[in-house]
């Protein structure tokens, strides 16, 4: 008798209001409700969370590691895209 493997879920935790949910890791669970419980039990033990999302891992479409050079390397030479060329007057203080 073969058993179906327990589905994998990606876990996203939001630690504070106003912040985005951040990828925390993954859990195995039979369904969405159990995945939420497992995510709470595994990834929010130290007060990390106010909100948890779980997403079936197979619902995520990922970029191909082989495309890395094509996709990401060209941006390395576009330093003008970083907002580091402005003179900020002293009176502005911390932005």
């Amino acid at each position: 008798m073969t058993e179906a493997p327990t589905p994998l879920w990606e876990v996203f935790v939001r630690s504070r209001n106003g912040l985005a949910h951040k990828h925390a890791g993954s859990v195995h669970a039979a369904d969405a409700q159990m995945a939420l419980q497992a995510a709470r039990d595994v990834y929010t033990r130290r007060g990390e969370g106010l909100s948890v999302w779980v997403v079936p891992s197979n619902a995520i479409t990922a970029s191909d590691p082989a495309d890395r050079e094509m996709l990401f390397e060209p941006t390395g030479s576009k330093i003008y895209r970083h907002p580091t060329f402005y003179e900020v007057p002293d009176e502005v203080g911390h932005m």
């Binding site: 327990t6 859990v27 195995h28 669970a29 419980q37 497992a38 039990d41 595994v42 033990r45």
Partner: peptide
């Protein structure tokens, strides 16, 4: 039975 439940029961 699983790592997830190990932590859940310990919690």
């Amino acid at each position: 039975p699983t790592l997830e439940e190990d932590l859940a029961l310990a919690n």
